[in-house]
Computed example of a mutant assay.
Amino acid sequence: MKRNEKIRCKIMAKWSVDPNISLKRLARKCNKNYYTVRKVVLRLKEGRSMQDKPRTGRPKGLIDKNLEKRVVHIIHRHPSMSIRDIAKKQVLHM
């Protein structure tokens, strides 16, 4: 569970015990900012998920697993080969 999700769950747990508590008092209990607590409670009332949405942008890690295997294989066979030479070798074999 991510840090933001933990914060939301903590606020949700305290709010579910006493839903009539003021947001300022709830913020003080959770040691969080009033606006953070307000957003979480409004999110709960709307019935939205407490989990983060996936982020936009380039995905982390390698996309082509076969390329990764080939590069690792070349490095194991020729440990002194430079990265530039490995890249040239991969371009020629593709």
Rank of each mutant, 00 (worst) to 15 (best):
P79N: 06
I21K: 13
P59T: 02
R70E: 14
K32M: 10
L62A: 07
V71G: 03
M12N: 05
L23N: 10
P59H: 02
V40F: 01
D85A: 14
P54S: 13
K88V: 02
K39T: 05
M12Q: 11
G47Q: 03
K65Y: 10
I21L: 09
P19I: 04
K88I: 05
M81S: 12
L44P: 04
K24R: 13
D85H: 12
S49V: 04
M1L: 09
N20A: 03
L42T: 08
E68R: 12
L42E: 12
K39E: 01
L62K: 09
L26E: 04
V91P: 01
I83L: 12
R3N: 06
L42N: 15
K65L: 13
T56K: 15
R8H: 03
V17S: 12
Q90W: 03
K39F: 00
T56V: 06
R8T: 07
K32W: 01
G61N: 04
K69E: 14
K88M: 06
M94K: 15
V37N: 02
C9Q: 14
Q51S: 14
V91H: 13
H73L: 10
K10V: 02
K29W: 01
R43N: 15
N31F: 01
K14T: 02
T36V: 15
P79R: 07
N4H: 03
M81W: 11
S82Y: 10
L23H: 06
P79I: 08
I75K: 15
K24M: 05
R48L: 11
R25I: 05
K24L: 01
C30M: 01
R28W: 02
V41N: 10
D18M: 09
K6V: 06
I7T: 09
H73E: 15
H76L: 10
S22F: 02
V91N: 13
S80C: 08
I86L: 06
N20W: 01
V71D: 04
S49I: 01
K88L: 07
V71A: 11
